[in-house]
Amino acid sequence: MTTASSVSAPETPTPQPGRLRRFAAWLHLHKRVQRNLLLGGPLTWMVVAYFGSLFILLLGAFWDRDPFTGQVQPFAWSLDAFESLITNPVYLTIAVRTITIAAAVTVTDAILAVPIAYYMARIATPRVRQLMVVAVLMPLWAAYLVKVYAWRTILQGNGFLEWALGPFGVDAPGLGQILNAWVVLSYLWLPYMILPIFAGLERIPNSLHEASADLGARAGITFRRVTLPLVFPALVAGSIFTFSLTLGDYITPDLVADAKFVGNVIYDNSSLGNLPLAAAYSLLPIVVMIGYLLVARRLGAFDSL
């Protein structure tokens, strides 16, 4: 908010404009060219590098494979991959499992994030608030893999949990429980939920809360009727991360829960050389996430991203 003061007076145009200058002057009068130049780079990058790649991947879903060597045969068209996905019920089981855990992680993170975000935004003193923002941000910088391994050492036999709970007769959960995936994924993505909610709460003017209180609403009612609806888009923005990151993860489910998620099927098949199946199954998270994003956009979440 201190930007205006740092702005100095613009240079007066030099008497003998160089070629670049003249081009700039010309541009000034041609808004459309300006716009196209600005948009050209990013759009080309996205269309060529990203959508082009996605397209080639989806094309690969229709390619045939040599049943013995597993060699993919480009442009030998086949629906085998889709047939496997439909006929083998295991792929549906995995999809349901993944989406269930992704939803559970999202709800858990929202429940954990709202109180702390609220405290940071509305109760903490500015100094404490700044410290807390740093405290929530720092774990984001700690390497993802390292955090997963930290959880492994906590969960496995002879680990921290067994040490802490052993005296109460609780065994170490080991590394084969699906609940581990729920806990660890909730842990990993929690900062992604806290930060947008915090930013959303911070944007709500204090006067609204005061007005609600003046009109006789108690704190609970103010929260439910004023705060929550206003911060909801931010919550949805955070949920995009918690949901999508869970949907695509394959390292955490494998390392802490010995469970197969959608990401594992895609990764395993790609590492086993069955690209068509990996590509065909990729359609699932793509479709789910595009649907999720369209709903999120309607709910206004994009302004909070």
Partner: peptide, 8 residues
Amino acid sequence: PGVVTGIA
């Protein structure tokens, strides 16, 4: 998901 971007 990153796994989709990665494979693509």
